[in-house]
Amino acid sequence: MSSQRRVTGLRKKLAMVLAIAFILLMWQIAAWSLPSFLMPGVPSVVVRLWEEVQSNNFRLALYGSLYRLGLGYGSALLLGIGFGLVGAVLFFFREVLKSAIVILQSIPSIAWVPLFLILMGFGNLPMVVVVAIAAFFPAALSVMNATESVQQVHVSAARVMGASRVGLLRRVYLPAVMPELITGAQLAFGNAWRALISAEMLVGFGKGLGRTLAYSGETADMVGVMANILTIAILAALIDQVILEKLKHRLLRYQYV
């Protein structure tokens, strides 16, 4: 992709700042238009958030959510990439898996929660599984779709040189699908994060950002609700735009020179 088509560096940071400013402005306009007990303003929410960040309950909730996210999202990436690459050399398996994903991904992630609560009981496991399911579909699909675009001349050349199926996956398919793999990982993170917060709100087990948000809503604490929403948005942006973007630049650095 040419540099003319990609916004990088200072312009990208400026775009992010303008987007944040626009969101905060719309929020504050809504706060001016509605009673404070329905829509608190940005300053009061920021003050509450600063107080919450310094509390032990916030740290426990943050740790609980990140722990579940790490287990579910990490498992989904490993399985999604693995199954996607296997589909590159086992064509019938790829078609079966793609058909299953097309059917199952239409089910909202939160719809799985009651089933897994009955099967697994209350605890972290049902929420981790829901997160893994939500992230698995885009991760696997992105890799499988990318393997279909790998040039057959490269595959044939590797086979002529004696490459096994494992060698094909490691030396031909994996490097070729890396850009789509990173994009799929970012899409999978969005799915995983939304599924995690929804599951924590519904399950009501242990500490978590979703559970804290649900409790604020149950007690009609609108400042707490908006503070938790702001926390969830900030964390998602940091993980996606800092951690995953830096990983993307490192793995695909040849595209950013």
Rank of each mutant, 00 (worst) to 15 (best):
S3I: 13
Q4L: 09
T8V: 14
L10M: 12
R11K: 12
K13A: 14
V17W: 11
A19I: 15
A19S: 15
I20R: 05
A21N: 08
A21R: 06
I23P: 05
L25Y: 12
M26V: 11
W27H: 07
A30W: 11
A30T: 06
A30S: 14
W32M: 11
L34G: 08
S36P: 03
S36E: 13
F37A: 10
V45S: 03
V46K: 00
V46N: 02
L49E: 05
E52F: 04
V53C: 14
F58E: 03
Y63T: 14
Y63Q: 09
Y67I: 02
R68M: 07
Y73P: 05
G74C: 04
G74E: 00
L78E: 03
I81Q: 02
V89N: 03
K98V: 13
I101W: 11
Q105W: 12
A111G: 07
W112C: 04
V113H: 03
P114W: 07
L115S: 06
L117C: 14
L117K: 03
L119G: 06
L119K: 09
L119Y: 13
V128G: 00
V131K: 00
A132W: 06
A132N: 01
A134M: 12
A135G: 05
V143K: 01
V143C: 01
M144E: 08
M144K: 06
N145L: 15
E148S: 12
S149P: 05
Q152L: 09
Q152P: 01
S156P: 02
G162S: 10
S164N: 09
L168W: 00
Y173L: 04
P175A: 05
A176E: 10
P179N: 06
T183M: 08
Q186N: 12
Q186M: 14
F189T: 03
G190K: 15
N191F: 15
A192H: 04
R194Q: 07
E200Y: 02
E200F: 00
M201D: 15
L202D: 04
G204R: 10
G206H: 08
G208C: 11
S216M: 10
G217M: 10
E218S: 11
A220C: 06
A220T: 15
V225M: 10
N228R: 05
T231I: 07
I232W: 01
A236Q: 02
A237F: 11
A237W: 14
D240V: 03
D240M: 10
Q241T: 11
V242P: 06
I243V: 12
K246C: 13
K246T: 07
R250P: 02
L252I: 08
L252W: 09
Q255N: 10
Q255S: 09
